[in-house]
Structure formats: structure tokens, C-alpha cells
Design a protein around this nucleic acid. Structure first.
Length: 514
RNA sequence: GGCCCGUUCGUCUAGGGGUUAGGACGCCAGGUUUUCAUCCUGGUAAGGGGGGUUGGAUUCCCCUACGGGCUACCA
């Protein structure tokens, strides 16, 4: 399928930052569109003005951009089916709801929220459930129960009213084929007379969603599982309008790494991992919520991790670029059950991507983040540091935590335990001999240092452990790290000797204190 | 409570009526390495329970348990 009429949409509500589950939904939509040569649209569902959050729409776009998910059509991108912000589409909804009113598929309701609330509470007390539907609407204040004159009078008095969908009086089974789950059947009896238009004149999700998906010629609705129970309502709406319904695919949710429930916006920072793609600052409270970008994740790694959380290619591959995934993505390989998010796996993906990145990208990236911490690196040094450190870190910024790379270790930087275990009374003497040997090295290159070091040990009849580890300790303060010969070359002869002196005396002092 | 969806190693998953139930993460062990990592090799570990259907079920059906979702003039 190269040219097709596949059109899918990601339709977030600008009520706050998008969390990783939302990004996954966007990703699957995007991949599905790409796999079928279709279009991926971004629609903003901002029909609830009370929940509108400043900056949320920009956040969504920035997050998608960071991930590399490109929007073919929608807000900002534009397109012939606009506008793509529901708050700007009210004329469409008014027109649509008129159709339903005329055909008797919808009616006006005058009950106040308080009245309905009271009914719900009472029903609960009676161990019942109140549902606004065929069984109850006759006894409530609406255009189905009231006479035409009464209704007109209420409207005349500017009594607030809403529009409700009229579910069938006689229950019928609504069956549809979910592209992921197969046939799903739900009785119309369990869907209530949903509100289509609120008292403020704006549509609810259900109406806007159906009208827009139809109007924007959406072919496949790929959305979260939380919409599965209202899918029959949507089907009934399409029928009431006389429109062909799109195909549906409901994605399972992402669960918390531990414990129960779906991953929520609050799980992140408490659990030590982000739930948001990029950092979010709440405009009201000023609270910050961390993002994968700021944690140092490569966008490719973050996205690959999300991709594999609920989809697989049918074989053992698990590393995919967006382009590769777009070639093989299909809904029938989407897993039905919910997946628990694993921070460990996310880290692993980052390591994989970091290690396969070209130096041409890593060098400037390291120089930039080093600069933010006041560390000046030139290209040569950045390259060497990367070579030394890349396979020892999960995130690029972790390289900067090895402060000994950029300056002599301070007192508090020394690994006390290592010093206690590996620095013997005779060690300072070995270091002094080592210094003499190093000072006489004509070509201060790793290979040269290494071979001279080895013959030096032979000469003195010493082991690697007796000399090399203390050497590392003196220069870095740490018990582990990259090749000391390469590191020494990186420092240069002069700095190496300085650090050796400095470290030796520092450690000797520490030993006295112990 | 009602309705809907789901259930394979600790986690993500493959497969699918006959398999030593495969891979990945994690963890453990060994090897490589001056150390720490990387890398390599190996190991650990799984179809909730009960009924059917079948010559044979992890795979198909039912029940149950458990998990998740929905049940607003929110999306």
C-alpha cells in the first residue's frame, strides 16, 4: 500500500504535559500512517475551557519534535481539513447536533448538575446506579418528557440546557471489530444518554471526536484503552449521523514499574524516573516535572523503548530507528495486554544508542553540556574523553561526573575505601620510582608508557596491582576507570607528574589521619 | 456494584494443539581486561486455578481468580 487513504490523528487535550503513554499513542499513530503511506494529524481537543492549561499545546508540539515525530497536518502544520483546534470548530458541532436533534437522535435536557448529583447519591444509598437513559429519562427534565410548550418556555427563560444523545429504548448489542483486540460487543443498555453539548454550548469529547474524525476523513482511530467502553457510543453516533465509522484500535495502557495501576503523572519523580518526554513547569504552581530529555536520554532511545513497550516485529529484533519501524509496523503485532514500564530497560536502550552514535555528533554534544557546567573542552579533548568514557556511562552527562578528567581530585574525591585497602606503607616509594621512570619517557604515548611501565615492573619485581592501582588512585582518586596509559597520555607528561606528586602527598596525609 | 479488556520467566515479549516453551532487560557465574566498564560464554527463571473439547492442550471453549480500564455538563 503506497498511496492510501490512511489518515490517523493524535488528539491530545491541552490540560497539562503529555506523558509517555501519550507519546506512545502518538508514535503508534505516526508509524501506522508511515507504514501505509498515509497522513498523521495533530488535533487539539480543547473543548473543556475549564481545564485548559497555558503552554500545554506548545509542550505537545515540542515533545513530538524532540522525538522526531513529524506532523503532516494539524495545528501549525495546517491542512485542508482545518481548523485543527476544536475550540475553533464550534460551527461544525452546532450543525451536526442540529442534525441529531431533527432526526430525534438527541434531545435537550434541563436538569441541573446538582439535581443529577442528588439522584446519583440517592441511588448509591439504595445500592443502585443512576443512569440517564431510556429507563429514567421519562421522569427527568428534558425535551423527551416535557411538552413542547414547556420546553419552549424554559428556553425562553434562558434556562441552561444541554444536549444528550438518545440511546436506543430497546437494548441492542453493539459489535465492532477492534484492529488489535478483534470483535468487541457491548450492550447499548450500559451506555447512558451521554452529554453531547454542555451548558456552555461547547461539545463534549464524544461529539467533537466523531464529528471531527468524520470531517477530517480519519480512517483509523488509534487511541488508549480508556476509550474502549465508549466506543459503542461512538459507533451509535456514526450510525445516527448516517456516516461510515472509521476503524478502531485501542491500545493497552502503560502500567507503573511497581505496584498497581496505570502510570500516572505523579509516578515519575517519586519513582526516580521521568514520566514526561521533556521537562514541564506548571504555570500555576511553578512545580517542575522532569523529562527524559533533561535526564540525558537520546530521543531515539526513548522512542525505541516506547515502541517495544507493547509492540514487536514478530522476531527478535528490538533496535529500531523511526524509519525502520515505519517499514514494519502493524497493528496486529500490537500486544493486547498492558505493559509494565521498566526504567532499567530504558537505561539499556540509552546505552545502546549512545555507543553507536557517531563522534561527529557526540563531540559537540559533550562540549555543549560541559560548557553548561563551566567546563571548557576543545574538540580534541572531547574526543579523547569520549573514547575513554563512553562505554562506562548510561548518559552522556555522566562523563562530567568523573571530575578527575578535568582537574586533579580534591580531598573529598578520593575513594577512601580503596585508599585504605590498596595504599600500603611502601606505596609512596613505588610512586616515586614510577615518577622517575615516567619523567624519562621520551615519547609520552599510551603504547610507549605501557611498555615502559611493564619493563619497569619487571625490573623492580613488582606486580600490576602494587603499582598501577595506586597510580590510578593518585591521579584520579577512583578505584576504576579507563586505561591509565591512555589517561596519562591525555593528561600529558607534565600534568601526569604533577598529579602523581599531588595525589601521593594527599593520600599520605589521609593515611596519617586514619 | 455494573460493564468492558486482559493474564507465558521478576520485567518486556515470541510462538502457537505435538517445541528441550525462544529472545531481550535484570540478576548470577566464567572468560577477555592493569582496574571499572564494554565485549563474549554460560546459568537463573514462565503459560493463575478449575472444568471441558481432543488421542494430545500453554495454544480452542466455559467458569473462577487476579490485574487493568470505564462508569462527569473531563478528555
Amino acid at each position: 500500500m503506497t498511496t492510501s487513504n490512511v489518515r490517523v490523528r493524535f488528539a491530545p487535550s491541552p490540560t497539562g504535559p503529555l506523558h509517555m503513554g501519550g507519546v506512545r499513542t502518538a508514535l503508534y499513530n505516526y508509524l501506522f500512517a508511515r507504514a501505509h503511506g498515509g497522513k498523521f494529524l495533530l488535533r487539539i481537543e480543547d473543548t473543556d475551557q475549564t481545564r485548559y492549561v497555558e503552554g500545554a499545546e506548545d509542550y505537545v508540539r515540542e515533545a513530538l519534535t524532540w522525538c522526531g515525530i513529524e506532523i503532516d497536518e494539524g495545528v501549525v502544520a495546517g491542512g485542508e481539513f482545518g481548523p485543527y483546534r476544536q475550540s475553533e470548530r464550534n460551527a461544525f458541532y452546532r450543525e451536526a447536533v442540529e442534525l441529531l436533534l431533527v432526526s430525534g437522535h438527541a434531545y435537550l435536557a434541563f436538569d441541573t448538575p446538582e439535581e443529577l448529583d442528588a439522584l446519583r447519591k440517592q441511588a448509591e444509598l439504595d445500592k443502585n446506579v443512576f443512569q440517564y437513559d431510556a429507563s429514567s429519562r421519562g421522569g427527568l427534565k428534558n425535551s423527551m418528557s416535557l411538552s413542547e410548550e414547556e420546553v419552549e418556555a424554559l428556553i425562553e427563560n434562558e434556562t441552561p440546557y444541554i444536549v444528550r444523545f438518545k440511546t436506543p429504548d430497546i437494548a441492542e448489542d453493539i459489535t465492532f471489530t477492534d484492529e488489535i483486540r478483534g470483535n468487541v460487543t457491548i450492550s447499548s443498555a450500559v451506555v447512558d444518554d451521554k452529554v453531547l453539548v454542555k451548558a456552555d454550548g461547547l461539545p463534549t469529547y464524544h461529539l467533537a471526536n466523531v464529528v471531527d474524525d468524520y470531517g477530517m476523513e480519519i480512517s483509523h482511530v488509534i487511541r488508549g484503552e480508556e476509550w474502549l467502553p465508549s466506543a459503542p457510543l461512538h459507533i451509535m453516533l456514526y450510525r445516527a449521523f448516517g456516516w461510515d465509522a472509521p476503524k478502531f484500535a485501542h491500545l493497552s495502557l502503560i502500567l507503573k514499574p511497581t505496584g498497581n495501576g496505570k502510570l500516572s503523572k505523579r509516578d515519575g519523580d517519586a519513582g526516580g524516573f521521568p514520566v514526561f518526554p521533556i521537562e514541564w513547569k506548571d504555570p500555576k504552581t511553578g512545580n517542575m516535572a522532569s523529562g527524559y530529555r533533561e535526564h540525558g536520554y537520546e530521543p531515539e532511545a526513548f522512542l525505541n523503548m516506547l515502541l517495544m513497550l507493547g509492540w514487536n516485529p514478530g522476531d527478535d529484533r528490538e533496535m529500531f530507528t523511526l524509519e525502520e519501524a515505519a517499514k514494519v509496523f502493524s497493528l496486529d503485532k500490537v500486544v493486547k495486554s498492558s505493559a509494565r514500564f521498566s526504567p532499567d530497560k530504558a537505561r539499556w536502550f540509552n546505552e545502546q544508542y549512545l555507543r553507536q552514535k557517531p563522534m561527529a555528533e557526540l563531540v559537540p554534544a559533550l562540549i555543549e553540556i560541559a560548557g553548561l557546567q563551566g567546563i571548557t573542552l576543545d574538540e580534541r579533548d572531547a574526543g579523547v574523553v569520549l573514547k575513554l568514557m563512553l562505554e562506562r556511562v548510561t548518559f552522556l552527562h555522566e562523563i562530567l561526573e568523573a571530575k578527575w578528567l578535568f582537574g586533579a581530585p580534591k580531598h573529598e574525591d578520593f575513594d577512601e575505601k580503596m585508599v585504605r585497602k590498596k595504599w600500603k606503607p611502601e606505596t609512596a616509594g613505588y610512586m616515586s620510582d614510577l615518577k622517575t621512570m615516567l619523567a624519562s619517557t621520551t615519547l609520552f604515548k599510551a603504547d610507549e608508557i605501557e611498555s615502559r611501565f611493564k619493563s619497569h615492573l619487571e625490573e623492580k619485581d613488582l606486580s600490576f596491582g602494587q603499582v598501577l592501582l595506586p597510580f590510578r588512585l593518585a591521579l584520579t582518586g577512583a578505584g576504576g576507570g579507563p586505561s591509565m596509559f591512555e589517561f596519562a597520555e591525555f593528561l600529558g607528561l607534565e600534568t601526569t607528574l604533577e598529579r602523581l606528586d599531588f595525589g601521593t602527598s594527599m593520600i599520605e596525609k589521609m593515611k596519617e589521619e586514619q
